[in-house]
C-alpha cells in the first residue's frame, strides 16, 4: 500500500457518472451524505483509469461536504483504492493462507517472471501492474488471481504464465478454474450427491468419458 499522494489534473465526474452520483446520494439521509464516499471513490477510480488522485479526493470531499483529510483517510484505509497510477492491466494475486497453501508462491513467481516486475510495481510500458492482495474470498478455488472484475482460479505456474501471455496477446483466457475444474465442484467425477450435481457438470464429464 502506498501513502504517497500523487497529484494529477483536474477531475470531474463524466455526465453519466454525475447522473449516477445524484441517484446514489439519494440512498442516504441528507445528514449522512458522507456515507456515499466509498461508492463515489470507486466510480471515480473507474473513470480515472484505475487510480484515485488528489483532485478526485478533493472533488468528492466537496461534493459530500467532507474535510479533504477524511476522504484521504478512507481512500488510504482500503487497499482497493490505488493512490498512484496503475497500468492498463491490474493483476491482483491473492497470497493469503489458503491460496498460499495451494501454491500462490508459484503463481506470484510466475507473474513476476513473466512481467519482470515485483509486487506494487508497474511495467515500464505502463501495461501491467502487479499487486499482492489479501483474501479474495475464493479460497475454494485457491490460488486465485483477480483481473478486471473476474477471478482466474486453480492456478499453477504454467497456467499463470499462459494467462498473462493471453492478456498480452489481447485474447484473454476465459475466467474461472484454469485446471479443467467445473466451478468449485470436485475435480473429476462427482462421487456423492450425484442427484444434486448440475447437469452441465455431468454432461461435461460424460463427454470426456470415464476418468478411470
Amino acid at each position: 500500500m502506498t501513502l504517497n499522494l500523487v497529484d494529477a489534473g483536474a477531475f470531474e465526474f463524466s455526465p453519466e457518472n454525475k447522473k449516477w452520483a445524484a441517484e446514489e446520494l439519494k440512498k442516504y439521509p441528507d445528514s449522512y451524505r458522507q456515507s456515499c464516499v466509498m461508492p463515489y471513490l470507486h466510480r471515480a477510480q473507474e473513470q480515472n483509469h484505475g487510480w484515485v488522485s488528489i483532485p478526485i479526493m478533493e472533488y468528492i470531499a466537496d461534493l459530500l461536504d467532507m474535510a479533504y483529510i477524511r476522504v484521504h483517510e478512507v481512500a488510504s484505509f482500503y487497499s482497493m483504492y490505488n493512490l498512484k497510477p496503475v497500468g492498463k492491466h491490474v493483476i491482483e494475486v491473492c497470497t493469503t493462507t489458503p491460496c498460499w497453501l495451494r501454491g500462490s508462491d508459484d503463481v506470484a513467481a510466475a507473474c513476476k517472471k513473466e512481467l519482470g516486475i515485483g509486487f506494487g510495481e508497474t511495467t515500464a510500458d505502463g501495461e501491467f501492474t502487479l499487486l499482492e492482495v489479501e483474501c479474495a474470498g475464493a479460497c475454494v478455488n485457491a490460488p486465485v488471481i483477480a483481473y478486471k472484475e473476474n477471478y482466474y482460479e486453480d492456478l499453477d505456474e504454467d497456467t499463470t504464465t499462459a494467462f498473462i501471455k493471453s492478456i498480452k496477446a489481447g485474447k484473454v483466457v476465459s475466467c474461472g478454474p484454469q485446471n479443467g475444474r467445473f466451478k468449485s465442484c470436485p475435480k473429476g467425477r462427482a462421487t456423492t450427491l450425484k442427484d444434486f450435481a448440475p447437469k452441465e457438470l455431468l454432461k461435461a464429464q460424460d463427454s470426456k468419458g470415464s476418468d478411470k
Binding site: L5, A67, I69, H72
Partner: peptide
C-alpha cells in the same frame, strides 16, 4: 483539530501497522 480548533486538517491515513498521523497532503 476537528473539535477544538475547527480546522480538520489532521487525520490518520493507512491502516493497521501502516497507520500514520498526518496533515492533509
Amino acid at each position: 483539530a476537528d473539535e477544538i480548533a475547527g480546522v480538520p486538517e489532521l487525520g490518520a491515513i493507512g491502516r493497521g501497522e501502516g497507520m500514520q498521523i498526518t496533515t492533509y497532503n
